Simulated scan of single mutants.
Amino acid sequence: MATFLFLIPPGAKSQDENARIIRDHFSWIAFFLPYIWLLWHRAWLAAALVFAIQSLGSVLSEHPVFGFAGVGICLATSLLVALEGPTMIVAGLRRAGWTVDAVISADDRATAEEIYYMDIKAGEPETRHTVSLPASETSTRRHAPMLGLVGFGEGR
């Protein structure tokens, strides 16, 4: 299953047609071409930083002593962009005023869209399914010390 993030533009209501859908996953293209992938997704500063770091790693890889360190820097940078690239895109959109409206786990994008827009089709656009858990301070049950640790029932 994949995780899909639904972001809505500033001032839009929940389940807006202009919602941007971003799949949070490992990207092979971002692994092999990290700064080009970042440029494609308009992450200019991150692309410049990755280009500089990979250039430094490339120069270091030609040195006889620091060769493995340079290759390691290049691989680590590529791996970071491949794993955290979608998170960088979401962070950039949030800085621009977009808000995360929903996070949905589904097999594919079509199923995630169907789940996201399901309330609109049912005619109830304002219904959101939430789970609220009680706060720990509202519980009347006192927790006993565990594994021989001292309880703080009397205060500190």
Rank of each mutant, 00 (worst) to 15 (best):
Ala43Asn: 07
Gln15Ala: 10
Trp40Tyr: 08
Ile120Gln: 12
His25Met: 03
Ala82Gly: 04
Arg95Glu: 10
Ile22Leu: 12
Trp28Ala: 02
Met88Cys: 02
Ala106Asn: 11
Ala112Trp: 09
Gly70Ser: 15
Pro64Ser: 12
Leu56Pro: 03
Gly57Cys: 10
Ile36His: 07
Met118Tyr: 12
Trp98Gln: 04
Met88Arg: 06
Thr111Met: 11
His143Thr: 00
Leu80Met: 06
Gly70Ile: 14
Asp107Met: 05
Glu126Tyr: 15
Arg94Cys: 15
Leu45Asp: 14
Leu133Gly: 02
Ser105Ile: 06
Gly70Ala: 15
Gly153Glu: 12
Ile36Asp: 01
Thr99Pro: 04
Leu149Tyr: 12
Gly57Met: 05
Ala52Gln: 01
Phe152Cys: 09
Ala112Val: 05
Ala135Leu: 05
Gly151Pro: 11
His143Met: 03
Leu38Asn: 00
Thr111Ser: 14
Ala69Met: 13
Ala96Ile: 02
Leu45Lys: 15
Gly85Trp: 00
Ala46Ile: 03
Ala112Pro: 14
Tyr117Lys: 03
Asp101Val: 05
Leu80Arg: 03
Ala96Arg: 01
Ala46Cys: 00
Ala122Lys: 15
Leu149Val: 10
Phe68Cys: 05
Gly92Thr: 04
Ile115Gln: 01
Leu147Trp: 10
Ala106Phe: 09
Ala102His: 14
Gly97Thr: 09
Glu62Gly: 08
Gly70Arg: 02
Ile73Leu: 08
Ser105Phe: 00
Ser132Asp: 06
Glu62Ile: 12
Leu49Asn: 14
Glu114Arg: 12
Arg109Leu: 11
Arg95Asn: 14
Gln54Thr: 04
Ser132Met: 12
Asp119Gly: 05
Arg20Asp: 07
Ala19Glu: 02
Asp101Gly: 06
Leu93Thr: 04
Pro125Gly: 11
Glu114Pro: 07
Ala91Cys: 10
Trp98Leu: 00
Ala69Glu: 15
Arg94Ala: 12
Ala46Trp: 07
Cys74Ala: 05
His63Ile: 10
Asp16Lys: 08
Ile104Gln: 08
Pro145Leu: 14
Arg42Pro: 13
Trp40Met: 03
Pro34Ile: 00
Asn18Glu: 13
Ala12Ser: 12
Ala46Thr: 02
Pro134Ala: 03
Ala47Ser: 05
Val59Gly: 09
Val81Ile: 08
Phe26Trp: 14
Glu113Cys: 07
Ala122Trp: 03
His63Trp: 10
Ala30Asn: 05
Thr99Lys: 11
Phe51Asp: 04
Ala112Phe: 09
Ile120Met: 13
Ala112His: 09
Leu79Met: 02
Arg23Phe: 05
Ser136Phe: 09
Leu83Trp: 05
Tyr117Asn: 05
Ala122Tyr: 06
Gly97Asn: 07
Thr111Arg: 15
Arg142Ser: 13
Gly153Val: 08
Ala106Trp: 09
Arg23Val: 06
Glu84Leu: 11
